[in-house]
Design a protein around this nucleic acid. Structure first.
Lengths: 341, 341
DNA sequence: TGAAGGCTCTGCAACGATGCAGACATCATG
DNA sequence: CATGATGTCTGCATCGTTGCAGAGCCTTCA
């Protein structure tokens, strides 16, 4: 049960612990004869280094933590995959955790008994943690934030340009000639500002086109889930003058909206065009494939990991603001059947 | 930068290191006066225990690893969420990793320099690792397998009854009066036997109904992804005598199939009824909501974690075979519009 | 009054690994 | 032959924590 230690191997091979360590790590020069003898003992005892001990001695674990609100939200799952890949390229492994969108759980992470000390760094996609709470903790392990901005310029931060992205999505709908473009996903009172940035982009698009925003077409949702998208869409359809297009603040909302539209017998995009955000894989395969804003997830993950690792190395302590690229992908939900998957 | 240690706090409060440790852990009795003094020092220096050191001393980390082929496959993401929740209930945290369905990466996990020694146990959803490879490693940290059986009865293992589940899904289609029921997802040559079990259930259903299996309607796919489901469906539709129902070995295949059917102008379920497996959330919101076999993911996660922790405690060393419950959920893809979401 | 017991508090050793300084043998060099 | 350089190998200290055994001191009770 108990693992084999360097001591066991040393005893077996009749050498010092240090020499075994040298063989294992290939550090100091060891004669071929001795190396062979030690190797035999290593194999016979099936030695595996105790990484905890190694970590203690070296002061680092080679692990970073990725904390997202919900792992089964496709966007976060896809992002997690990219972060894992990016970290692996640097020899790091990633521990993924979810907060269930619970602010207390986010705070727990920063608290005294947090397991966070096990990690060399933290990539956090925050939901409700405030800047002050984060600053309290700032002198601990390095943190990189994803998505939410949280106050201005105190932490390294990676995100797309939400205003521009939302503006482009809305403009795309306006360019199709739609004049009653709804928005689903506003969160005027939330801590996070992502939704507000997107609303701002939505307004900008109207302003630049010289059009009025129809305030009654802006729908607030507490979360970005399918069900809420469907419900918001139903409310929009019940309006005396329903929209002819919808910009949803993420793909799940959009897929929920599509579901509601289909059930209501509306044709997409003829009656109502739909745009989402995130470019989750699911959107490509929905019955009406989904036009969306695709953030470059791989790039987001790479930049986040790079920044974090630099901060861990102490190569740079400065907090940086990184804007990752995004692009509009047009599919059937705005372009009709004439577009491939 | 360097963390505050017990030593620092001890010096500051003019007490022994051991006493500080006692205060932190609330172990031995400490007078109120001293406790207060130490607490002040703890707060002033913002002490956080070094978990790595604690782990080394205690021989456990309080972390388990969950390894799945792909994190952005909804089933695994949803399962990961449940495992995280189940582990948290026992005070454990979960590190999630993905192997990209790459056998080498799975093997790497079991190899000499694996980070696996950092964990108290491992929940593994294997893809191509063999029984022998696993046994080699068996005397290391405890392992619980999910899904794939891998040889018989040497490791604790949690899964649904795949044969019964597939039989029920197929029977449901036959009961609707369908007589050309296709199967998408067979993997006759794969290491894993899950697909084979499902094919076996599919055949059983036909046998029990006294019907012949149409061999040309069994489609093999290398993976369980949407695209492959769509492609398989297209091939089925190209047959001289296409199917009037499809049983897909997971929901992603089914959603791909639905997509292909819709593009081909077939009505669901009137022309072709579709059943999937896994009950991923996405299936509830597809334009035609998806009838599926729902494995009890929460139960799978709970049983897997419970079994693993027992094995870690040494409470039981025996390997157990756990069959988790499942049920058929009928939605529009087989029942038409008369069923709610 | 003195032994026994309880309450606080402390020092030492250990978990398993690595950094460092040096011991010892061998060899080349002047 | 003495000296220094080189190549191997080793022991000690250390990372930050906790387990263990015990040291003082104070109370209690015969």
């Amino acid at each position: 049960m108990a693992g084999t230690t360097l001591r066991d191997v040393a005893k077996r091979a009749n050498v010092s612990i240090r020499t075994v360590s040298n063989v294992v790590n290939g550090y100091a020069p060891v004669s071929d004869e001795l190396r062979a003898r030690v190797q035999v003992a290593l194999d016979e005892l099936d030695y595996r280094p105790n990484l905890i001990a190694r970590n203690l001695k070296q002061g680092r674990t080679g692990m970073i933590a990725l904390v997202v609100p919900e792992l089964d939200v496709p966007y976060f799952a896809e992002l997690a995959r990219e972060v894992i890949t990016a970290a692996r390229a640097h020899g790091y492994v990633v521990m993924v955790d979810q907060t269930d969108g619970d602010g207390d759980r986010e705070r727990e992470l920063l608290g005294r008994d947090s397991r966070a000390t096990m990690f060399d760094g933290l990539v956090l996609s925050p939901l409700s943690v405030t800047a002050d709470e984060l600053r309290e903790r700032a002198n601990r392990i390095p943190i990189v934030l994803l998505g939410e901005h949280i106050y201005h310029g105190n932490f390294s931060h990676v995100a797309i340009d939400n205003v521009a992205a939302a503006r482009e999505a809305t403009t795309h709908l306006l360019d199709l000639g739609r004049r009653r473009v709804a928005a689903i996903g506003d969160q005027p009172y939330a801590t996070g500002e992502t939704a507000q940035l997107r609303t701002s982009g939505y307004r900008q698009a109207h302003a630049r086109a010289g059009l009025e925003v129809h305030e009654e077409l802006i729908m607030t949702t507490s979360h970005f889930h399918r069900r809420l998208g469907a419900e918001a869409m139903e409310r929009l359809l019940a309006l005396p003058d329903p929209p002819d297009a919808v910009f949803c603040y993420n793909d799940l909302l959009a897929l929920g909206a599509i579901r509601a539209l289909t059930r209501a017998g509306r044709r997409i995009p003829e009656d109502v065009a739909v745009v989402g955000m995130d470019d989750i894989e699911e959107g490509q395969y929905s019955t009406v494939s989904l036009t969306t804003i695709a953030p470059d997830k791989a790039e987001i993950a790479r930049r986040a990991v790079d920044t974090l690792l630099k901060s861990i190395d102490g190569t740079t302590g400065a907090s940086t603001e990184i804007v990752a690229p995004h692009r509009l992908i047009v599919r059937e939900s705005t372009a009709g059947e004439n577009v491939g998957t």
